[in-house]
Structures are given as structure tokens and as C-alpha cells.
Design a protein around this nucleic acid. Structure first.
Lengths: 126, 126, 126, 126
DNA sequence: GTGGTCTAGACCACC
DNA sequence: GTGGTCTAGACCACA
């Protein structure tokens, strides 16, 4: 469900926050849905529970998640519906810019890049 | 030439190191070429000179750059030629994986992603 | 400057957040002013630095404080001026309600309460 | 009768314990008086019954309350009479100190504070 | 020097 | 079982 990599330089809690935001944006996580428990996520990703907890707390402060005492955190109930495709494409932009910059610096043209992206995504779908 | 963003969580010096490596990998920076001076880069990107200097020093320790007293740092002279396209595509993988993960979490299909990437890269070329 | 009590049941980081908000509200801390460093505050109050850091981080997320790399945190520069007296009295309400509830349950009348408050505040001023 | 606020950070059971102690201290609850049932209090304050029960049990352990099988809990019969006014003023101190600290940080003088307290208590009496 | 991140582990509050 | 808070201590990024 989530993909946390401690070696990228991006803090783990920030990776998680961003990924939760995206899952909510696409309605793979809907208002009222429970998130994985702090301990469970910490176990499966071999990360300290506090690191997960920090991400959840900050998303709660943002209003994206809600806490219910003694229960798992849930997606906030007062959120707008699934974001439109243009909005979600907007959220994709940073990853695209990052890719394009790398390609430019590697002198790889759009043909090569598009081919590599297509292959990766097809392999993933399969 | 470079693109340094202090807000991503990735340390600035690591962003710079990675970007220099890519430019060398593609021979946009060739053995003997001078890099921008620490001061210049620090000015244009509003970054502390020590941060630039640290990146350069670590690349020097890696053998990618050479320092000549009183002159700008240059790309090391004993480097292999431009990397082959497969090698450079390999360097592109992390950015592709990052993009694919974001797309999956946003529930955007490969068609939409490829279209967005193509548009971004064309706009950039223009 | 601050008053942190670990025995009230109110989390320390929340006590600190509330007190910083009040100091800013009254302009005892003005935009641009530096706050005590995390380590300093942790030392003087015998509290773990992370506890202080957590309060500061959450106030930053709120927009009340700003972080400058390598420097102490400062009060955000884009804040409105000192709050009006009615606004500050509004902030005082929870403490007043708490006092009134206690007085009611202790069957102490407003005369006794006002006298006690006056005495406490005069002693404090002296 | 009681005032339980889940958002202050103070555990609910501690809020309740403190308030019961004050009611007993002022003889608004006298030895032999029955307390509201766990279920009733839990309902009216939208709190988990176990939370109420825990507060009652701890007050029982303190000797302030007595449990009679199948009946409501009552105030213990062997308690001293109503506390003297100085004793009750002593119990009020924490709330006063809290108020004075808030006022100081908000730069509100004793005149303003006393006025606000008086107004609040009069409104409450009315 | 500053703050940030993470860990390992404890105890608490609540369901 | 859930999340929350705190500690002690390590290492990193940045000025």
C-alpha cells in the first residue's frame, strides 16, 4: 500500500504524508476509511512507530485525517469528493518535473524517456 | 543548469551531487570542463556557499571532480567516456519509479501519465 | 518567560504552544523576534529537546513561527499586529471558565474569588 | 453538574476526579449522597463508561467514595465536615495561577482580568 | 552554534 | 487493541 524508502534523503514521515494525500486524492482512501495502525505500519516497513505517528499527527493537523480515541485513525469525513483528473495530474507534476530534469541532464530525449516510462508502468500493471 | 530546491527534504548538497553526476554521465560536462564557482552557484541559487562547497568536495573525494588551487573545479580528466544510453537509462530509473508510484496512488493510468510527460518535455524543449 | 508543568496532565508541548501564542498575541514576541533555542529551553525546564522541538514544529505548521536554516526559529513576519484587547480577553476565556467552574464547585462566591485573584496578581506584580 | 472536555489534553477521568473532590469539599455532595450512575454520566457527556468508572474507582481507592453492590456510588460516610473557606480557597489556587499566567502573557492587567472574571461569574449566576 | 530525523523503549489514556 | 507523550541519545543538514 505504501512505499517507504529511508535512503532517498526525503524524511520517511514526509514520504508517508505525501502518499496518504495521494491515496485520498484518488479516493483509494475514502472519508471514514481506517488507516493502517501505527504499529502495523511500523512493523511492516521496519520503521519506528513514532515516525509513523508523526506523519499521522501532521495529517490530522492538516485536517486530512481524524482521530477517534482508542480506534484507528480515519480519513476525515468532511473532505470533498475524489479530485478531478486535472487536479490529480497537478499533484503528479513534481514527479514529472523531477523526471524531466534528470532526463535533460542525462541527455535522454523524450522518445527514450517515454519508452522507459511505458515499459515500467506496463511491467507494474502485469 | 542546476535545479536546487530547499523544500523537498532532500539535502541540497545531495541534489547538486546527483545533478553533476548526471551531467558528467551525459558528457554535458566533459573531462577538463570547469564547474560554476562555489560563490556563483551559491549566489544564483540563494544557498550557503558551504553547502555547494561540501557537494564539490564529496564529488572530488569520489574522483569525479578535480580541484586546482586558485582555479575553478573541473571534471576529472581520467574519466571514462560518455556512458552508454542503457547506462544512462539506468540512472533515470529512480525518477521513473517515483513517478509510477505517484501515478498508481493517484489512480492515473499510463495513458494519462505518458501524455503529461510528453507535454512537459515538449514545452521544455520549446 | 515560559512556565512548563509536567504534572497537570496537559502535554508539555501543548502548554508551550499555548504560551507562545499568547506572547505573540500580546506582542511580547513580535514578528522577526527569535525564540529561545530548543536546547536552551530544554535545559532550563529540564525537558527533552524533542518535546520543545515538537511544539515549535507545530507552531511552524500553524504559520505562527518561521524556521531559518541554521538559526533560531523566529516569529513569522507576515502576522497581523498586536491583537486588540477584546481579542486577548477572548483568549483569556478558557482560564476564566476553568476558574469559575472550580469556584462554583467549591461554593465560593464571586467576592471571595475576585479577592483571591486580586491578591495573587498584586503579589505577582510586586 | 460536571463539565468534561475531551480536548484540553487533561485526561477525562482526572477532570472528573477533581470536580468530584471539589463538590465534596464544598458539601454540595455530602456523605451518603449518591453520585450519578456511570451509565448516565457516560451518556450525558458522550464519554466511554469505562472512563467514568475508572474515575469513580480511583476516588473509591482514595476513600472519598464508597461502592455498594447494585447501587449507585455514594460519598463516603466517614468524611470530615465541609472544608473551611481557607481550605477551599487553597483548592482554587491552581486555577488562579493558571489565569494569572495567561493574563501576564497576554499583557492584560489585573483591572481587565478582574472585570472579565466578575462579568463571567455574574452571567453564570443569573 | 541552530533545528531535524530517527531509534528503542517506557508508560499513559482510551475503546 | 488503538494512538499519545516523553525520554535518552545518536547522527545529519545547515550557518
Amino acid at each position: 500500500m505504501f512505499n517507504l524508502n529511508p535512503n532517498t534523503g526525503v524524511p520517511i514521515y514526509r514520504q508517508l504524508m505525501e502518499q496518504v494525500r495521494r491515496m485520498v486524492s484518488s479516493s483509494q482512501l475514502k472519508p471514514g476509511d481506517a488507516l493502517p495502525s501505527v504499529r502495523e505500519l511500523a512493523m511492516t516497513h521496519a520503521v519506528n512507530p513514532m515516525t509513523i505517528s508523526k506523519a499521522y499527527s501532521m495529517l490530522e493537523a492538516e485536517g486530512l485525517l481524524e482521530r477517534q480515541r482508542g480506534k484507528a485513525m480515519t480519513v476525515a469525513g468532511n473532505l470533498p469528493l475524489q479530485e478531478s483528473k486535472p487536479d490529480r495530474l497537478e499533484r503528479l507534476q513534481p514527479a514529472i518535473e523531477n523526471l524531466a530534469m534528470a532526463a535533460r541532464q542525462l541527455e535522454l530525449g523524450s522518445d527514450d524517456v517515454l519508452k522507459a516510462v511505458r515499459e515500467h508502468m506496463e511491467k507494474q500493471d502485469a
